[in-house]
Simulated assay, not measured.
Amino acid sequence: MTEKIGVIGTPGKWSTEALADALEARTGYRQVIDMARVTLDLGTRALVCDGMDLCALDGLVVKKIAETYSPDALDRLEMLRVAEAMGVKIFSPATAILRLMDRLACTVTLANADVPMPPTTITEDVTAARAALDRYGSAVFKPLFSTKARGMVLLDADAPDAEAQIAAFKAANPVMYLQKKADLSGHDLGMVFLGGAYLCTYARVNQTGSWNTTIHSGGKYAPFEPDAALIELGRRAQAPFGLTFTTVDIALTPDGPIVFEVSAFGGYRGALEGCGIDAAALVAEHVHQAVTA
């Protein structure tokens, strides 16, 4: 019997297609699903994409729920909960991903697990935001829904237009989330886990002088060998979320390592280019074994 395992992602994108290829090599079945094309009928409990009911599949791997993070993406995850209730095995579970799409939900979960993070303030009050910026000296204002530093603003407390920039950020982000700027020393780390087990760590190295090291801002992947204590920090950070595949973003600062966030979907390209690991093949094998168990 051929197991029917679909990939939810972005058709044509490298990581989505690589994962679909790896699953096809193991099952002979290939299906890429764009959630923008999915319709849920709660009366019949059918979750349909291009004429196919996703609830009839054996498994679904969520590579990307949407191209950009937004509250709408959370609604797509809620739709997947119907497939879960109908017995479809989903990797990672929708409820696990829900805690990571919203930056605040991720941060609160990490804080409750006593994971070290940059000093962080969340407020809707511009006066409180200004006071936090004064305490921090320099802070990164972050949208609650964003990836690869999109929409983030770096502010210095002594900037002459600091109040105006805070007001502008507030206009686009009613709930303001700001973190003290960390000394990244030109790089930060992505620590990769599969099924809770450590795989590897890669570095994102600044190449452009940007304040952040994301690939979106010109950073490059490089190998990195962490010590046992750092691996344990990454393990503790990802543990509360119960994800199939994830990357923990860690920075090494003069005051010790800190965790920025846990990825909802993991860094496939970082694992390949930074560690030389084919994460798509490993995830496909992990999922295939879980579905056929």
Rank of each mutant, 00 (worst) to 15 (best):
M1P: 15
T2D: 13
E3Q: 13
E3T: 12
V7I: 15
V7D: 08
G9K: 00
T16Y: 04
A18L: 14
A20Q: 02
D21M: 10
L23I: 14
E24F: 15
G28Q: 08
R30M: 10
Q31N: 13
I33F: 07
V38L: 10
L40V: 10
D41G: 03
D41C: 05
L47G: 13
V48H: 04
V48A: 11
G51Q: 11
M52G: 04
D53T: 09
L54A: 07
L54T: 01
C55D: 12
C55Y: 05
D58L: 04
L60R: 12
L60M: 12
K63G: 14
I65Y: 02
A66T: 00
A66Y: 01
A66W: 02
S70N: 09
S70H: 10
P71Y: 00
P71M: 02
D72H: 07
A73F: 05
L74T: 02
D75K: 14
R76V: 01
R76W: 04
L77S: 06
R81C: 09
A83K: 06
M86R: 15
G87E: 08
I97N: 01
C106E: 08
L110D: 00
A111I: 03
A111N: 06
A111M: 13
M117G: 00
T120I: 01
T121H: 12
E124R: 11
D125G: 02
V126L: 09
V126E: 03
T127V: 10
T127W: 02
A128H: 06
L133F: 02
D134T: 04
R135T: 08
S138G: 13
T147C: 14
V153A: 07
L154A: 13
A157L: 15
A164I: 07
A168S: 09
N173K: 01
P174D: 05
Y177A: 01
L178V: 06
Q179C: 04
D183L: 09
L184Q: 12
L184R: 12
G186E: 06
G186D: 08
L189R: 01
G190N: 11
M191E: 11
F193R: 00
A197P: 06
V205H: 03
T208S: 05
N212F: 15
N212H: 08
T213W: 07
T213H: 04
G218T: 05
G219P: 09
K220H: 08
Y221M: 13
A222Y: 09
P223I: 06
P226I: 11
D227N: 13
A228D: 14
A228E: 12
A228I: 07
E232N: 11
E232G: 10
G234F: 09
P240C: 02
L243V: 03
T247D: 12
A251G: 12
L252Q: 05
L252F: 01
D255V: 10
P257G: 07
A264F: 03
A264Q: 05
Y268M: 06
G270I: 05
C275W: 08
D278M: 07
A279W: 02
A279N: 04
A280Q: 03
A280Y: 05
V283W: 07
A290M: 06
V291K: 04
V291F: 03
